[in-house]
Design a protein around this nucleic acid. Structure first.
Lengths: 336, 336
DNA sequence: CTGTTAGCGCGTTCAA
DNA sequence: TTGAACGCGCTAACAG
């Protein structure tokens, strides 16, 4: 069924080595033989057995990506950009989903077993302190690149651990600048759980930015979930209070979409009476309840991949990357 | 660095085979030895080399998924559900993105080289007739499972080619039933390019369903792209015409979201003056411009995976699956 | 330029 | 119950 080097060699009356060299375009092989071999290989539909190859050369050309969910926009964006970058570099991508620490450890072990040369990891949103992945991968001495969320108790770049995260503090300030210009002073905040380092960064950016501009945070909520449902529920509660903010700053687009939906349902015009902002610039920002003012970031997957690629080629350390965002103004924000 | 069977064997004063058997829980190994081996393996952090293993046993426990884009909701849904199903079965998943026939062929060859036991394929939306993937995979005699779109000139189930598609004709009828009950008679249609078999099925369902219920299609558009932008643009054009439909049936949620946005921008209430429906029940259906009446389908990835799994275990053929949808009524549809 | 030898880490086979 | 020999498909290092 499957054609091997030996089959080609026998068919051509050559040695296995000659065929191997011809196919790999080695320097010490005759042009004539090479042509014959290539023709035969094409005719018989040969393709190399990478398992055998990587067993021999101890390089698999394979990396693993571990994430909690591929269907979420977050997961889709990271995996999509990483897959593109890997494909362009001729590196294959193994994808695993894991919803618990136990599954994470299993999946990572499976990836290492298959020869993954690096592990890319988008952690779950969780308050767990130690990550099983960090332990398993660290012990094996494999490069480990975190996306978006990262452990507080590790210093990146030094060893084989690094991360690519968004500059959430900067994102908060971009939004606050914009809202301040529009005349907003009293804002509400819908954030993530501060145990997650990037949520904490966003919160810090908010607190510092608000103080620096003479603004105040009227209602501040830290949610564990980061979905639209949560934003909708929290916004509903907030509408019951007597003092109302003129703007609602959210830590992501989904929460902002949920909050917008709640406001619209209560007959409040979004972008008119109350402004709402998100972070991410995904599908919900463009085609959500209201075209949304948000902060757009470059694809983290690409950045992470080139981080590793440099190390693989022996050029430099894996310095963590804090990616800067850009403000995108749409209709969900307006004058106070 | 990496621990091999031999390292464990030497450390324990056993043969490689004894260790191998102990780790695989073979019947002919002593309980005491097994315990010793397991302890040592755990202590030294052993994990098997799958490349070597699959070279020997000629089974990789690996499948490949090829798609045009992981970041689209379509790609994210298929890959997410396939990844979950594979993970539960202990099968690893190789993911490749490809935007052209040439890239598709390359990626598929790479997957086969790595020992993929089956190829799952979500084709691009295209009007090309012959797929390079079909050719390459078919020649290798590997199982090939299409998602959503499939070749017109192949009969599935017979050989190693099959597919999992949504019952788009049925989806059209679910929606038409609902709209007819609400009193709608004149509907507009925003569909996909009929070269894609599933778009053609939806169109056929529409035409037959409309005729059977004494309804008419006022404006019918087949778009090549299936994104929100297209729906928005087409809806704008439609608003310029003199005769207006009371409902707009769209072939997916993104187009419906775009159409809704155009209607709202023109001051037309969606679900009040004009009803809009989609297909898919994704994020845009729940948190789009208007909570959307749509058709929800089970995850195709899971269905496709179990299709292959049966064959792998030697139980039955790969019969193509036409998955039925369910109507989800939300606010975007109302009385005519 | 071409071929030979050896072995990557594992599992099948069969003998001890 | 355990172990020795052998080979999966490929390539590094050397010899011819």
């Amino acid at each position: 069924m499957r054609v091997r080097l030996r089959d080609l060699a026998e068919g051509l009356g050559l040695s296995v080595m000659a065929v191997s060299k011809a196919l790999r375009d080695a320097p010490d092989i005759g042009v004539a033989t090479k042509a014959r071999v290539l023709a035969e290989a094409a005719k018989r539909g040969y393709w190399p057995n990478e398992a055998a190859r990587s067993l021999r050369v101890k390089q698999s050309g394979l990396v693993g990506l571990l994430l909690p969910d591929l269907t979420s926009e977050e997961g889709a964006m990271v995996s999509g950009s990483l897959a593109e970058a890997a494909q362009e570099a001729g590196i294959a991508l193994l994808v695993g989903v894991a919803r618990s620490g136990k599954e994470e450890a299993e999946q990572v072990r499976a990836m290492m077993g298959r020869g993954a040369e690096a592990i890319f990891f988008l952690p779950r949103i969780s308050t767990e302190h130690r990550s099983a992945v960090l332990e398993v991968v660290g012990r094996a001495g494999l490069p480990l690149i975190f996306f978006k969320r990262y452990p507080a108790d590790v210093d990146g770049g030094k060893g084989k651990v690094s991360w690519v995260v968004r500059d959430m503090g900067g994102a908060a300030n971009l939004v606050l600048d914009h809202l301040h210009d529009l005349g907003h002073r009293k804002v509400a905040y819908l954030g993530g759980h501060p145990a997650a380092r990037s949520s904490a960064e966003h919160l810090r950016g908010m607190e510092e930015g608000v103080a620096a501009r003479g603004m105040v945070i009227l209602g501040g909520v830290q949610m564990v979930g980061l979905e639209a449902e949560g934003g909708e529920a929290e916004m509903k509660k907030m509408l019951g209070k007597k003092e109302r903010p003129t703007a609602v700053v959210c830590v992501n687009d989904a929460i902002a979409a949920g909050a917008s939906r709640a406001l619209l349902a209560a007959g409040v015009s979004v972008g008119g009476e109350v402004s709402v902002t998100g972070v991410g610039d995904g599908a919900l920002a463009c085609y959500g309840p209201v075209p949304m003012t948000t902060v757009c970031f470059p694809s983290l997957g690409r950045v992470g991949f080139s981080l590793w690629q440099k190390v693989r080629e022996g050029k430099g350390e894996m310095k963590p990357e804090i990616v800067k965002g850009e403000l995108v103004v749409r209709e969900s924000s307006g004058k106070a």
